[in-house]
């Protein structure tokens, strides 16, 4: 475990040194505050459009952070030839992979915490309420989503040759699942035939990333989700994340470093 945490701490330190998160946080705050300054019919209590924009920016930022942080881990170690001395130490390839994942996930979780604190303050200034439990649920589900994306991206990083192709494919897949995920079965029923069967296989086999997106519930002040639903989501994310990481470890063991 100490090996894994050592690798993870390096990933977190790297993210602290890089300016990506600060820039994204600054841009999110700037755009949201600029939109918040717009006056609609002289009503200062209008809040939901602002919450929607802010959450959309947070989701885009988190996706960018998760994908690009995870995608460059192994290829950059390989390119800068720091992978040799790392693997020369008493650490297995699986531990390196798990350490990279843990680092990426914690880095995402830390940056998300900053984003959600900003969102909570913004929301409270407009609506005058603090639905902390709802925000905690949304934050935790968002963290699970980032973990899933990071594990999938790490798998892609040992599969695809270039960082750009990996990142593009993952972003397209995640975007498609967020938009179409819950409708795949309906589309499959309407399509029919072989294509319909393939879509149905996708519906049951692919991870339903849209479950972790509860923005509409937060924006429109719906009551919080039952905790047993959150527990099921957590198990679901751990199961899929575990599968992706196991595959990534297996692939990394056969990965040609030279």
């Amino acid at each position: 475990m100490s090996h894994i945490s050592a690798v993870a701490s390096v990933v977190i330190l790297e993210m602290i040194r890089r300016k990506d998160v600060y820039v994204l946080l600054f841009l999110t705050a700037l755009i949201t505050l600029a939109l918040g300054a717009v006056n609609f019919f002289g009503d200062p209590k209008i809040a939901r459009y602002l919450k929607e924009v802010c959450l959309a920016l947070i989701w885009v930022s988190s996706l960018v952070i998760a994908v690009f942080t995870a995608a460059r881990q192994i290829p950059s170690e390989k390119e800068s030839r720091t992978l040799f001395p790392l693997l020369a130490k008493p650490i297995s390839r699986a531990q390196v992979m798990l350490g990279k994942f843990l680092g990426c996930w914690l880095a995402c979780a830390a940056s998300l915490a900053a984003f959600y604190v900003f969102f909570a303050i913004l929301s409270a200034t407009r609506e005058g309420q603090w639905p902390v439990a709802n925000y905690v649920q949304a934050y935790w589900l968002h963290c699970l989503f980032c973990g899933l994306v990071a594990s999938l991206t790490l798998l892609g990083s040992v599969w695809f040759t270039a960082v750009s192709s990996n990142a593009t494919i993952i972003l397209a897949f995640v975007g498609a699942m967020l938009v179409l995920g819950r409708h795949l079965h309906k589309v499959a029923m309407k399509t029919g035939g072989l294509a319909g069967n393939l879509l149905d296989v996708g519906y049951y086999a692919l991870p339903h990333l849209e479950w972790f997106d509860v923005r509409d519930l937060i924006i429109h002040n719906w009551p919080r989700i039952d905790w047993d639903v959150i527990a099921k989501d957590t198990l679901y994310a751990f199961a899929y994340g575990g599968c992706f990481l196991a595959l990534a470890c297996w692939r990394f063991r056969r990965y040609a470093i030279h």
Partner: peptide
């Protein structure tokens, strides 16, 4: 239709309401 659909509906607004009548809030 299935357990995925059923579980999915707990993650987005899935009951009808109008803002001026019976909306959350």
């Amino acid at each position: 239709t299935d357990w995925i659909d059923g579980h999915s509906r707990k993650h987005f607004p899935s009951s009808h309401s109008h803002l001026d009548e019976d909306a959350p809030g």
